[in-house]
Design a protein around this nucleic acid. Structure first.
Lengths: 253, 253
DNA sequence: CGACACTTTGAAGACGATCAACGCCGGTGG
DNA sequence: CCACCGGCGTTGATCGTCTTCAAAGTGTCG
């Protein structure tokens, strides 16, 4: 029963768009469901790449570790997120990031060769994969640009907007989906700085109390954030991608 | 004659690896050679995406413009570099960057549909394209991380190493391939800061006089840069990619 | 020679990281 | 039931780094 639900969700994943149900069966039968508990390591930097993953439930943190021992969170994947497609298609042997479950999570695990073979075999899958990686690449670019051109406070404001769309939260009041420490790390700033921005944000249309967030003045927020964002449709892009990847619930058009 | 030389170069481009000469013919016949002069705009942010490009000669600057009018250089493409594959595969209609020729340059121009069709049609091409985009995505990630974790001086030192490999320059003495203003913009720092780092770099094994650079102590440079670089084989990765993409001259193994 | 693009250098200021102290909360064990 | 602890977040003070503004130096080309 549970298994079937998961399958249904995964079947509507953009990666499988344009495939027949039969083809999806063939592809999905090679997957394995994997559960992991809060704090569990999925794989570590330097370990051989063995699988491709789709997150079904929970949040997975991807991060790198410096020689100094400093950590940088590259990404926090939610349901629908994918892992390792780049490493696999790039024929990179060793993992370039660490992956750890932020909370109890469920993943779908595919053998490495599955991805390469499917990319060869199914035209639609190929294009979906290309599209997925392209989007990912684009987002990375935009993020790098944001990092370079926006202040901490703007970064956080931008994050709040995205989180809201990505997790389908009500802007008028929602809870942060994960710890502030993780968010700060994700945004590449210290926890202290992050904490301070939250106070400042009140002047820009976002009120935060504990883990509760309220976007009080969306217009002001957008003015504040997007003035420094060179990509006009940036937030729109984020939205689109968010909607596509979410498969826990349909969003109205 | 010239045309033939260009073709030869392009034929050995990693994008066409694994294709028969006949297939390459079919693919390349759809391309058009395009020359552009120093300062010429290839396309601008917001304009519709119409072509895929491979740089044959010269340097092309890709940059974004903020609402503030601030510019951020995303990339400087050299011969062998490709443009717009992400926009095309992502089915993004409008260009997300501006492209301008830093110097007189030559490009190979393919219609938009060419890329999508070729990706559908030739298995090898598909995988090459996936690999290309994956690498690109990975580099973007690494760069974002560098930006976040390294000092300006370290960034410049890292840049010097890469430039050296990418352009096949002799570390014991070479000229910067383009203006310092552009490099600074590429590295996301102000020209003034860049200029100042060059003085500091002397203490870390790199001497710069005008546009002349000499890496006097490679070991020291690497120690200085890679200590903060979380990806162990980072520079190795850059190297590999550099070698693959260069097609103006073969490098010894 | 003078105009202009490019680069260097100096001084001031802003921003974020770091260190340190403290408050809050949930869990555990006496 | 209370005391202690550890994880997490806030707040304050300080310090280093990078940006900005301003001015002057260098080079090339007409």
């Amino acid at each position: 029963m549970k298994q079937i639900l998961v399958s249904d969700h995964v079947r509507s994943h953009p990666l499988f768009a344009g495939l027949t149900e039969l083809e999806k069966d063939t592809l999905l039968v090679q997957s394995r469901l994997r559960r992991c508990t809060h704090g569990q390591m999925l794989f570590a930097q330097g370990e051989p790449v063995t699988h491709f993953y789709i997150v079904v439930r929970g949040n997975i943190q991807l991060f790198r570790t410096n020689r100094d021992g400093r950590e940088k969170t590259m990404e926090v994947l939610k349901s629908g997120g994918t892992m390792c497609e780049c490493e696999i298609m790039d024929s990179c042997r060793a993992h370039r990031v660490n992956a750890v479950a932020v909370e109890d999570s469920v993943l779908l695990e595919f053998p490495l060769t599955w991805l390469k073979q499917s990319a060869r075999q199914y035209e639609a899958f190929t294009l979906n994969l290309l599209s997925l990686i392209s989007q990912h690449s684009y987002l990375a670019e935009v993020e790098a640009e944001h990092l370079a051109s926006m202040s901490s406070t703007q970064l956080v404001a931008c994050f709040m907007q995205r989180i809201c769309i990505l997790y389908d939260l009500n802007p008028k009041g929602f809870e942060l989906p994960y710890a502030k420490t993780l968010i700060a790390s994700r945004l590449g700033m210290s926890l202290e700085t992050f904490s301070r921005t939250l106070v400042t944000l009140r002047d820009h249309g976002i009120t935060v109390e504990g883990t509760r967030v309220e976007i009080t003045d969306l217009h002001r927020v957008q003015q504040y954030v997007c003035g420094f964002c060179s990509v006009a449709e940036d937030c729109a892009a984020h939205q689109a991608i968010g909607k596509e990847i979410v498969f826990t619930h349909e969003k109205k058009a």
